[in-house]
Design a protein around this nucleic acid. Structure first.
Length: 259
DNA sequence: ATGCCTCGCACAGCGAGA
């Protein structure tokens, strides 16, 4: 089964790209981030016309996550929102059963600028995610944490076009990376890096400064696999060509294939 | 050091993204 994470940067602005992705790739599930619409504004009719169904957790103007699957196998909602802070108003987490897999769509806070409450929110959110990930591992099932993690794991050019250019970004800070590693070390497999131990595997290219044209990207969209899911890993990759299309998102769809 | 580009909101530029 092909499971995808795709930060759309606006589901309505990106609807033609989403529909053609569903129709061309026929994935078994797509985790969306940054749908940027209220629940009632989610274009579910267009998604259904493409043969898919879904669950979503929207927010007017910002954030927002969803999980789409073929209409004959709809996702079964398990959770909207991350536990640990009832006052958190951001729509950044949704979790559903997709076949025999527990699948989460994650939109981790960006955290810029460093040193502000936004960065503190990022780190606090990551600690909440770590705690929840631990409870998921305790189920001893195939679990996939898929999303825009907003963390560049290393300074290596395989992860980032220029560590120097990005050095002061929240995506690169030691605290962000430590929090990411703390989750990984609980027992998760970074599927893209497992499949491609060497070589650049960027998932994001900024709209500005010709970043796409000069391949100045970085790797922030990750699929973390529980041990049961990792045992079933067949392949993983990035549908990079979709980033080059007209009116594309700044992220490329990133995926795993599980037995 | 800043803007580059794009979104949503709302209908003019601005906050936010990364």
């Amino acid at each position: 089964m092909k499971l995808v994470t795709y930060n759309l940067n606006g589901v309505r602005a990106r609807l033609p790209r989403l529909v053609e992705y569903l129709q061309e790739e026929r994935p078994d599930a797509v985790c969306l981030q940054e749908i940027k619409c209220a629940d009632e504004a989610f274009p579910i009719a267009d998604v259904r016309a493409a043969g898919y169904d879904g669950v979503w957790h929207g927010q007017k103007g910002f954030n927002g996550v969803a999980i789409l699957t073929p209409a004959d196998r709809p996702p079964v909602l398990r959770r909207q929102g991350l536990p640990g802070d009832p006052d958190d108003t951001h729509s950044r987490y949704i979790e559903a059963e997709v076949g025999d897999v527990v699948l989460a769509s994650i939109y981790l806070p960006n955290g810029n600028p460093v040193g502000t409450e936004k960065f503190a929110y990022k780190l606090a959110w990551m600690e909440r995610l770590r705690a929840h990930a631990e409870t998921l591992l305790a189920e001893e099932r195939a679990v996939v944490l898929a999303g825009d993690w907003n963390v560049i794991p290393t300074d290596h050019p395989d992860d980032v076009f220029s560590a120097r250019a990005m050095a002061h970004d929240a995506l690169m800070q030691p605290e962000s990376r430590a929090a990411f590693r703390r989750i990984l070390h609980g027992g998760w497999t970074d599927a893209i890096r497992a499949r491609y131990p060497d070589g650049p595997v960027y998932t994001f290219w900024d709209y500005t400064a010709g970043c796409w044209q000069r391949d100045a990207g970085f790797r922030i969209d990750h699929l973390l696999l529980s041990p049961h899911a990792a045992d079933r890993l067949l392949d993983a990759g990035i549908d990079k060509a979709h980033r080059g299309r007209e009116k594309a998102s700044d992220h490329a769809p990133t995926w795993v294939s599980l037995d």
